[in-house]
Design a binder for these strands. Structure first.
Lengths: 195, 195
DNA sequence: TTATTAAGTTGATTTTTGTAAAAAAAAAAA
DNA sequence: TTTTTTTTTTTACAAAAATCAACTTAATAA
């Protein structure tokens, strides 16, 4: 797949917060386009990951293994950013894996370069603030949804936020993401079908 | 209680990200020190709240009423910021109340002024990014803790983050914050005592 | 295509937690 | 202090969801 780096950066600028031409160019110098197949692992548990990834198209998943169980922590679709957030922000070994759930085109940027760009360009600092703020608001939403709702309500909630998720993400991952077992999710869905 | 505004602003600058003297002065012009007693309500449900509050000392709680039940959404202690996050960032009527759990000294700043300061000062933009990032990381931590842990582990978790919370916040609020009932929390605490 | 593996469903059972109501303890007010 | 109110604990019971195991369906590879 042929992809143009400038087009990706332009999309970031349009989606989050406008960047000057100069800043976009500097970002282009520092970033790398990756075109990768479904199943590819971007980050492994235990490894330091100082990269953040912008999904141009496709989708990715962050998850961790807890007592051998696979627990999904985050999904990112087109126009979302994803990183191993603890490793990226706290500079510790990643507790997460990140893998691609579809063939995906993404832009990779390192923390070092983000820091440099944030130092040099006020508008880049703003963009990164806006990205973080959006993530923070999504997490807040997710906490509300988890805090005193039944499994059925949590599932309804994620469907309302992303109606196509069941077409793009295996149910096991959706289940662990909302904090229920696959079996419980399966039952919920069957109740729905019968009505 | 006598409190010096410059001292509060200096503490913000030291805690999160250094502000130039000029920026600190501008912030002083725009902000207001509040000295309020325990029990005071800062924000009511349904009201637009475009303020953020920095807790110099004391503590505050954001909560909402869901089917008549009081559910704690956030606690803020000294050196934390608190706001009705949906109202503040999305400019919608607040789903939350915010109340003080102790006699509290705080600094109030409006969104309009934060935006202006962020436009005018790169270092203020950076500070606000850092505040949001810290909140985002705390929420991430909280999600992990809620996702696949039993009530007991969730309680252990909050205690490890803030060991003095049981001395400062009624158990009802701690329970709803971690998404369990007061009765369940009470059972957990008694199991602990017997070992 | 067939074989193999992965993903999702179903049922029986157990564990965990919520609900409701009452009692005890602690804190605040008179 | 005594009274009143708030907070926390305790119990019995019900509901929700987890676990375990078997089975079905779908997807992938040979």
């Amino acid at each position: 797949m042929r992809v143009n780096k400038e087009e990706i950066i332009n999309r970031i600028s349009e989606t989050y917060s406008k960047l000057t031409f100069e800043c976009q160019q500097k970002l282009a110098n520092k970033s790398k386009v990756l075109v990768l197949p479904k199943g590819e692992t971007l980050v492994r548990q235990g490894q330091y990951s100082d990269k953040t990834f912008f999904i141009f198209n496709g989708c990715a998943r962050a998850y961790y293994l807890k007592d051998g169980k696979d627990i999904s922590d985050w999904f990112a679709f087109e126009n979302d950013f994803i990183s191993s957030i603890n490793s990226f922000f706290l500079n510790i070994p990643s507790p997460h894996f990140i893998e691609l759930l579809e063939n995906t085109v993404l832009l990779e940027i390192s923390r070092k370069d983000i820091e440099k760009l944030s130092d040099d360009f006020h508008d880049f600092e703003r963009l990164s603030k806006i990205v973080v703020t959006k993530t923070m608001l999504q997490q807040h939403e997710r906490i509300s949804s988890m805090q005193f709702h039944k499994a059925e309500q949590k599932y309804a909630n994620i469907l309302s936020i992303r109606p196509d998720i069941t077409q793009r993400v295996p149910l096991t991952h959706i289940a662990s993401y909302i904090g229920i077992t696959l079996e419980t999710l399966s039952r919920i869905r069957n109740l729905k079908n019968r009505t």
